[in-house]
């Protein structure tokens, strides 16, 4: 089998993952898109491992690692999502912006404070 098929498939999968991560609002779907991207990379690893005839099968071994790490990561991610949903009653990623710099209108910047004092 030519290398192009798995490579194109991996590109498509990765693009779908990128789109999902950037565009979907539901956190669950964002996490699933991340999985898609990871699996696209896994596909590449396996395909190139075969194509390069690597005697040590480093690609396959790394894929196993990635799958393990991805499983741990998704568990953690779902736990975070669950907690966010419990406290905020929402799973929309664009509504969870508490770490952003949103309170500019309330507090004057330092420069303005000095000017106001002067």
């Amino acid at each position: 089998m030519h290398l192009a098929y798995p490579a194109v498939l991996a590109v498509l999968l990765f693009s779908v993952g990128v789109y999902g991560v950037l565009a979907r609002r539901n956190v669950i779907l964002v996490l699933m898109s991340v999985e898609l991207m990871l699996n696209a990379v896994n596909l590449n690893l396996v395909a190139f491992d075969v194509w390069l005839r690597d005697t040590l099968h480093a690609g396959q071994a790394l894929t196993l690692f990635t799958i393990t790490v991805a499983a741990a990561e998704i568990g953690l991610g779902l736990a975070v999502v669950l907690l966010v949903y419990r406290t905020r009653r929402t799973a929309a990623v664009d509504e969870v912006t508490a770490l952003g710099d949103r309170h500019e209108a309330d507090e004057l910047s330092d420069g303005e404070k000095e000017q106001a004092a002067a």
């Binding site: 991560v21 950037l22 565009a23 964002v30 990623v93 664009d94 969870v96 912006t97 508490a98 770490l99 952003g100 710099d101 949103r102 500019e104």
Partner: peptide, 9 residues
């Protein structure tokens, strides 16, 4: 600071 919206996406 305008760039720092809090939206991870």
């Amino acid at each position: 600071r305008f760039a720092q919206t809090g939206n991870a996406q």
